[in-house]
Simulated scan of single mutants.
Amino acid sequence: MTKSLITTALLTSALALTACSKVHNTEGTVQGQSFKGIINGETVSASDDIAKTTVQIFTFQVAHDDAGRALVRGVAGCTGTLLAEDILLTAAHCTTENPYYIILYFSNEAPKDFKAFMASINTNPLVRRVVGGKVGTQWPKLVSGKVGDWGDIALLKFEGGIPEGYQLAELLPAKEKLAVDQPITLAGFGITDGIKQTPSTQLLKVDVTILDPTYTKTEMVIDSGDKGPCHGDSGGPAYVTGSDGKKYVAGVTSRADVRNDPRGLCIGDTLYTKVQPHAAWIKRSMKSLQSPTFKPALIPQPQGG
């Protein structure tokens, strides 16, 4: 597995494709399902705890030519939440097999000039290199037609620590229960119009409610449509207020609810991976990623995904 962040050939290809790539979207599908950004949201101020825990993710969609050279076919944008000085929580579909093709950008504003951003990623002090990751145990087993319990959750290990001004988020404790109509705050860097594919220029958030907290054992449905997540918000946090008045991460943005948004146009409800059923997996995976004996490895992806 290559250890270079972005090779010369890779960077050249990425720059060539920037103009036509939907770099702020999580374009593409897994098993025919579209993935979901914040519509009708509000700007997250720099003093907001959400701004201090939320990070942009860029995943390079890479192919290899006959000579074995890595060529970028596109760049997909996602969102993640800081859990440790070197660990980010996101969706499994925001990962790719080779972790070195994923970078993190610590800024509450999206790159204004993506070509210039790409040219500077090896020296940009706000960019961090991903060196490993873990995906939910069900994710590598995902098959066509599976309705729920995708295991669409992931942890990314990165180098360089977190920049000044950032802090760690807390996961919803097991004792806290999720309920129908419970207020929930979503955040992300996704597009602001699912039809026009309008990219966001900054981190946004929106307050909505939980529609079904027990859609599956590991997933919940968020009441969205006229306001809520869209492409690029994938992997982003869903915050609820606990009984102690603190804000906790309860879920991770996964995908459109195909029952009322079959084309993934961000006009229906959204499925979120719940963190509570994955608490033991998160703890175990973080321990593995932070082990002194940690060695980078490929991130398992769905068969044919």
Rank of each mutant, 00 (worst) to 15 (best):
M1H: 07
S4I: 10
S4Y: 01
L11F: 00
L11H: 00
T12I: 04
A16M: 12
L17C: 11
L17N: 15
A19I: 11
A19N: 15
A19G: 15
C20K: 14
H24Q: 08
H24F: 11
G32Y: 04
G32A: 08
G32K: 06
S34W: 09
S34E: 01
S34I: 02
G37S: 04
G37V: 08
G37F: 07
V44D: 15
S45M: 07
S47G: 08
S47K: 10
D49F: 15
I50H: 14
I50D: 02
A51R: 13
K52W: 05
Q61F: 04
V62Y: 01
D66E: 15
R73N: 13
R73V: 02
A76G: 08
C78E: 00
T79M: 05
A84D: 01
D86Q: 14
I87C: 07
C94S: 01
E97C: 03
Y100D: 07
I103L: 14
L104A: 10
S107D: 15
P111G: 08
K112Y: 11
D113G: 00
D113C: 00
F114A: 05
F117T: 02
A119V: 01
S120Y: 04
N122L: 15
N122C: 03
T123M: 03
N124G: 01
P125E: 09
V127H: 01
K134T: 00
V135T: 07
V135E: 02
G136A: 07
G136K: 13
G136I: 13
Q138T: 10
Q138I: 04
Q138H: 14
K141A: 12
L142F: 14
G145V: 10
G145S: 04
G145W: 00
K146G: 10
V147H: 07
W150Q: 13
W150T: 01
D152N: 00
L155M: 04
L155V: 06
E159R: 12
E159Q: 14
G160C: 12
I162Q: 03
E164H: 00
Q167A: 15
L172K: 00
L172M: 11
V180T: 12
V180P: 06
A187D: 14
F189C: 12
G190I: 12
T192K: 06
D193G: 03
G194Q: 05
K196F: 07
Q197G: 09
Q197V: 11
S200Y: 06
L203Q: 10
L204C: 11
V206H: 14
D207R: 10
V208Y: 09
T209D: 07
I210E: 15
L211D: 05
D212M: 06
T214G: 12
T216P: 10
T216Y: 06
M220H: 12
G228H: 14
C230W: 06
H231G: 10
D233R: 02
D233E: 10
G235R: 05
G236M: 09
Y239F: 13
T241M: 05
G242M: 11
S243H: 06
D244V: 04
K246R: 13
K247P: 04
V249A: 08
T253D: 14
S254C: 02
R255F: 01
V258Y: 02
G264Q: 02
G264I: 02
G268W: 03
D269Q: 09
V275S: 12
V275I: 14
Q276G: 05
Q276L: 09
Q276V: 13
P277F: 09
A279M: 09
W281Q: 10
S285P: 11
K287L: 12
L289R: 00
T293M: 09
F294R: 08
K295L: 13
A297V: 08
Q301K: 08
Q301F: 03
P302E: 03
